[in-house]
């Protein structure tokens, strides 16, 4: 199963004044069982920990993505938005996977699959023995849906204030973090259902 899904910013390496790596949206599917904390702020602390974990993943994805961009000689200008009509070629977008060892930052060992699309990073945090090929396909699908239905790359789009749409997509295509074996026609059906439930 998927433990978490996140969307975050990707900065141009070595550019100045680009701020910090920001998590724009994250969804954690179910809590990791935390050791019982008898202290009064247990819940608060758990939430803080969860947020820090997600940020730690985002930072690692960002640096992996930057390193891959550098290695493949993509100039940083590639991160600039293109004309919004052009479909983003997701199959050529930088992508990869890496392991998070147990205890850093999650209790259990997990795998991260990531995809970088212009200035946005998308990542799934997976349980250790998940079907990686399916996870990659699902991440591409999610990225495509989010880009299409939220028009993320269009001027005026705002991922931060469109949480309902992201949730609507996740509820259908990644329910409770369950990776689904969806063939093309199932995807189309779900997409139609989504468009009907949350009209633009």
């Amino acid at each position: 199963m998927v433990h978490a899904f996140l969307i975050h910013t990707l900065r141009v390496p070595q550019a100045e004044n680009t701020g910090l790596c920001r998590v724009l949206y994250s969804c954690v599917f179910g809590a990791e069982n935390s050791p019982d904390d008898p202290r009064p702020h247990g819940a608060e602390r758990d939430r803080l920990l969860r947020k820090e974990q997600i940020l730690a993943v985002a930072r690692q994805v960002e640096s992996m993505c930057q390193l891959q961009q550098q290695a493949s000689g993509r100039p940083p200008t590639d991160l600039q938005p293109q004309s919004s009509d052009e479909p983003v070629p997701l199959h050529e977008a930088p992508h990869g996977a890496f392991r998070l060892e147990a205890g850093d930052p999650f209790q259990e060992s997990r795998t991260v699959v990531w995809l970088g699309v212009l200035s946005l990073g998308f990542a799934l945090v997976l349980d250790a023995h998940e079907n990686l090929l399916l996870a990659e396909g699902t991440l591409r699908l999610l990225a495509r849906l989010l880009l299409d239905h939220l028009r993320l790359l269009a001027p005026g789009a705002n991922v931060l204030l469109r949480a309902d749409r992201i949730e609507g997509i996740l509820v259908r295509f990644l329910p409770h973090g369950q990776l689904l074996f969806l063939n093309d026609q199932f995807v189309q059906s779900l997409e139609k259902e989504f468009s009907a439930a949350l009209p633009r």
Binding site: T9, R11, V12, A15, T18, G19, R22, L24, L79, Q80, P81, L118, S119, L120, L152, L153, A154, P155, G156, A157, N158, V159, L160, L161
Partner: peptide, 13 residues
């Protein structure tokens, strides 16, 4: 507030 691109990223920031 647009996210992609540098100018817009700082706005989302």
């Amino acid at each position: 507030c647009r996210d992609p691109g540098r100018g817009t990223r700082s706005r989302s920031h």
